[in-house]
Write a protein that binds this DNA or RNA. Structure first.
Ligand code: MN
Ligand code: MN
Ligand code: ZN
Ligand code: ZN
Lengths: 147, 147
DNA sequence: TCTTAAATAGGAATTATTCCTATTTAAAAT
DNA sequence: ATTTTAAATAGGAATAATTCCTATTTAAGA
């Protein structure tokens, strides 16, 4: 699933973006991150191999990615914005104890909700998409029961 | 549904909080707001009748409410944090064009998802709750179909 | 009414993000 | 391969959102 620099370069050009070194390395790192990183975290990691990259560029580039549909912001209650280049339809588990945000895929749930919303029809609303956050904590045993 | 100052006072005391004037008026305003206001918006409105209230107190008080379970933060991608004293189980519609965040109640959907998550069981996760954001735009016609 | 621990006001400090502009660079044109 | 140029970046200043600090005030119990 890892994308090479040349694949990323093509992707950027396809989106009408200039394929700069900064955009390539930022996208590469974000795409291969599964932690939904902040701009600052990406910046700190990028600096190692790109010592002259600037934090402003990381912010601006992430915003460009969001505008062009190459990435999404992941909602967070605490602190800074987090980003995700995983565009496959998925939701997020928020571990309240460890602060991790972990991808949650479930096509059955996805279909269930889409079917429900299509059936339901909310007056005066054209739905574009929906996002679910599941909040909980890490446990040792396999167990879960809500409500 | 409007709560009187004395009811709010009781509520605060029941939660183990000192029933200060600031907490009472902040809770009162938040509870009767349906816009999921920011701290700054609450502050601006509160100043009219409470000219000496401070923004820091509004922030701190809202945090106290969140900690004691009297209010919740409502996730937002843009700008400042928003708050909600409506604790009945509900989700939110985000109007991308008007920036409004509107309550969405649907016990059928709620039950559907709870049943699904209970059946499913995610390894090593103890689910506490879940939140859904429905993103879309205001339209004139009653219409909706996703995917 | 007195006492006191907790809360507030007001402002300073910090964090997260955006803005500014001189310099650099990707990529189109030659 | 070189030149041109509009767009992007680096680096730092500015701003927005929030938290922190502390002298003063206040709720509530003795
Ligand atoms: Mn915040
Ligand atoms: Mn933000
Ligand atoms: Zn994700
Ligand atoms: Zn709400």
């Amino acid at each position: 699933m890892e994308k090479s620099f040349s694949e990323i370069k093509e992707l950027l050009i396809r989106k009408g973006l200039k394929a700069t070194h900064q955009r390539i390395v930022i996208y590469h790192l974000l795409f291969n991150s599964f932690e939904h990183p902040t701009a600052e975290l990406l910046f700190d990691k990028l600096k190692i191999n790109n010592p002259s990259i600037s934090l402003g560029t990381v912010y601006k580039t992430l915003d460009t990615f969001v505008q062009t549909g190459l990435a999404e912001k992941v909602l967070s209650e605490t602190g800074s914005d987090r980003y995700d280049a995983n565009l496959s339809s998925h939701h997020h588990i928020y571990y309240t104890d460890t602060k991790e945000i972990v991808d949650f895929y479930d096509s059955e749930l996805q279909d269930l909700i889409i079917a429900f919303l299509n059936k339901k029809s909310i007056p005066n609303l054209k739905i574009k998409d929906f996002k679910i956050q599941i909040h909980g904590e890490k446990i040792d045993m396999v167990e879960n029961q809500i409500n």
